[in-house]
Every structure is written in structure tokens, then in C-alpha cells.
Design a protein around this nucleic acid. Structure first.
Lengths: 203, 203
DNA sequence: AGAAACCTTATCCTTTCGTATAGGTGACCC
DNA sequence: GGGTCACCTATACGAAAGGATAAGGTTTCT
């Protein structure tokens, strides 16, 4: 697997190459700035499986360098690496079509995994950047396990008969469950129950 | 690499095993419910590299089953798989310490990559859940103004008669609109249509 | 042993939903 | 003028949903 790493810090470049070749079995090329990276990308045959660009290196000019590298990469994945993780990076990077964002705080082992992952065409984003939810706590809805299963079918827009078939039960059983679900959720009917469930993230 | 898949749908179980063994080179065990999964986890020697649990299977009881499996897995990664992707799942799953969340809408190829990733100790989360980025202009649903009004009533869980009263129309008119709405949204019935509308933020 | 949940199935009945069919209006455009 | 489109209404019928009620099963806790 061939990857290109572009970073203006020579120490990091060398250490990264050494580690990735030894631990990941990658063939690693390194360059020190964006122009050199673009040349390597254009001339690489076969093309790189992944290109990793440092955010603060010469020639990057914010996200503009990322966009230029993406345009030159023939559809091969390009990731952005940075020591800082300001809010908005994740969105901006993904919106550009990049393969992911690599904070320099990442453990070396995870870096190898992330590189393999992105080289396979997936999109990587460290979990730290997940947005915190404003609905943290539990949702004790008082629903029994079976009722939760029926509710899932309800949310999928299934008819009672279909739900019964899926769960290997008879239709009257489903009807009863639906009635009790509506009562517990305070819904007027199945549609209302499904909407309430979706709102409370119960399904 | 050994993985365990627990899902109550036999078809999915068989297809998944077949695909993962052929395409991923994994050794796949499958079970149909949580108790069986816990037994397999406890008796596996060497332990599984990854355990994948279906959210709606018997014994899961919401996220409780995930917690129990995590407690029994000796630190090995456990992932949750589900057909639905309501908001809040990401936070809840990560808070439990799970290895990731696999929506059943995931392409098979990505599933293999995600499994490898998680088995390596990383945390996987589909990018769709990183942020509600389904904001791009999707409003062009082909619905007429009147249909949008009826759809709003639908999403509120109202009966046709109620919607008719609210809009000062007759019930047969509402029925017709509901049918056309379902057709345009590709829904099987009113509940399905309401869920689709909510998902696309049409109401 | 008993109580209490939960799960299951059933029957009867009424209401609602869903579909098909058929007709009507008014607005807009070529 | 004729065409299309959005909109409204109506009737009729089968399918599905929803309610009430009864009853047997399991597990779990007291």
C-alpha cells in the first residue's frame, strides 16, 4: 500500500515514515510542502492509496490546499492532518470530500488503523469530534422489550400483519402491544406513536 | 480473525456470514439472540476479535443487552447493529464503551472495513451520524401546497377526519391527498409517510 | 405459595384507512 | 379553444386498525 505524507516538520516526517513502514507495512513517500505533494501525486504510478496533508505546511493556505490536492488526486483519498482541532474542522473537511481528519494527538497505533481504513475508501473522523448531544440522560419509557420490538416495526411503517410475521407472532398480539404502546406514549394512534418514538429516540 | 454476529433474522445472519467469510476472510459465528451470544462470548477460546449485536433481537432490552455483552466480553470490542438510525444512538453507544454502531443501510464493502477497523481496537461511527448534515436542499419533494398541509396533519398523528376539519375540507379529499402523498414519498401507508417526512424534514 | 409483570392468543365489534372510480371547478399556457 | 395541472367532492367496498374483554402461559419477586 502506497501512501504520501506531506509535512514541513522533518522530524515528524521521518518518524512517521519509519513507524508506518515498520508497523503498517506501507510504502511511504514524504514531501515537505504542498507544491511538492502535488507533483508527487501527479507523477505517482500507480497512484497513492492515500495522501496525508499537514494543515499548516507551506502552500496549504487554509483549506484551499486540501481542495487542490483533492482535485489532483484522481478520486484517490486525501486526508488532512493537524495538531490543532478547532471546531468546524470536521465539517469543513468532510464537505470538501476528504477521506478524513487526523489530529496529531492520535495514538500511533490508531493512525495505522485509520490509514488502512481510509485507504479502503472509508471516511475517518476521530470520535472526539462527535458533537455532544443535548439529550444525555436515559429515556425510561416504561416499555417492555417486546413492546420495543413492536415499536421498531411501527416506526418502519409496517402493518400489524408484517410485524407479526417478523416477530413470529399472531396479529392479535401485535394489536394488543400497539394499543399498550400508544397508551404508554400518550399517542392517539400508531402514526402518532411512531412520531413520538422518533422524537424521543426510542427506536 | 474471529467474529460473532447475533441477529434474530436468519436470512440476514446467513447472508452476512457468507459474505464476510468470502470477502473479509473472517471466521464468523452466528447466534439468534442475546443469551446465546453471551454463552458464545464466555466460551470462546480464543476470544472473539469483535462481537456484533442486533439492537432489536430477543434479550436486548434496549441498550441493556449491549451493556451486558460489554461486561462479559473481557475488554474485546462489541458493536451494535440496527436498521434504524435515530439521533442519540451515537452518543449512547459510545457512552457505553461499544466499539461502534453499524446501520443496516451500510454498504457491504464498508461493513467489512468497519469490522476490520473495530477489531483493531478503534471506534467506528458512520459519518452520517457525526452531524445531522442532511441539510442540503431536499425540499423539492414534488408535493403541492395542499399536500404539504395534509402531510403536516399526518405527522401530527391526526386522523383523516381531523385533518379535514382543520383544513375545512371533506374526508374523501384528505384520503385522496394521503394516497398521493404516499405515492410521491414512496411510502406504504400513512405511518410510513410520516416517518419519511420527518426524516427528510418535510414537516 | 401467592402476587405481579409480562407475553400470548382469541373473539366480537366499530371505526378508520386505503383504493378504485367518476365527476366537478378554476388557473395557467400554447 | 384545448390542454394540463392542482384542487375538490362523491360513492362504494375490502382491508386494516383499534377497542373491549377473556384467558392461559411464563418468569420473577415477595
Amino acid at each position: 500500500m502506497r501512501i504520501l505524507i506531506a509535512d514541513d516538520h522533518e522530524l515528524l516526517r521521518d518518524v512517521l515514515r519509519s513507524y508506518l513502514e515498520a508497523e503498517g507495512g506501507f510504502a511511504v513517500d514524504t514531501v515537505a510542502d504542498l507544491p511538492a505533494a502535488l507533483v508527487n501525486i501527479a507523477e505517482a504510478a500507480p497512484p497513492y492509496d492515500l495522501v496525508v496533508l499537514d494543515y499548516g505546511m507551506p502552500g496549504m493556505d487554509g483549506y484551499d490546499g486540501l481542495d487542490r490536492a483533492l482535485a489532483a488526486s484522481f478520486g484517490r483519498p486525501v486526508a488532512l492532518m493537524s495538531g490543532l482541532a478547532p471546531p468546524g474542522v470536521a465539517e469543513r473537511v468532510l464537505a470538501s470530500g476528504a477521506a478524513g481528519y487526523l489530529p496529531k494527538t492520535l495514538p500511533a497505533r490508531s493512525l495505522v488503523n485509520a490509514i488502512r481504513f481510509m485507504a479502503a475508501g472509508e471516511t475517518y473522523m476521530p470520535i472526539d469530534l462527535h458533537r455532544p448531544s443535548q439529550a444525555p440522560v436515559e429515556q425510561a419509557s416504561g416499555l417492555s422489550p417486546r413492546e420495543r420490538q413492536v415499536l421498531a416495526g411501527l416506526c418502519a411503517g409496517h402493518a400489524n400483519k408484517e410485524i407479526a410475521r417478523d416477530l413470529d407472532l399472531r396479529e392479535p398480539t401485535i394489536k394488543l402491544h400497539v394499543k399498550l404502546i400508544c397508551r404508554k406514549l400518550g399517542a392517539k394512534n400508531r402514526t402518532h406513536a411512531a412520531m413520538i418514538a422518533r422524537e424521543r429516540a426510542l427506536c
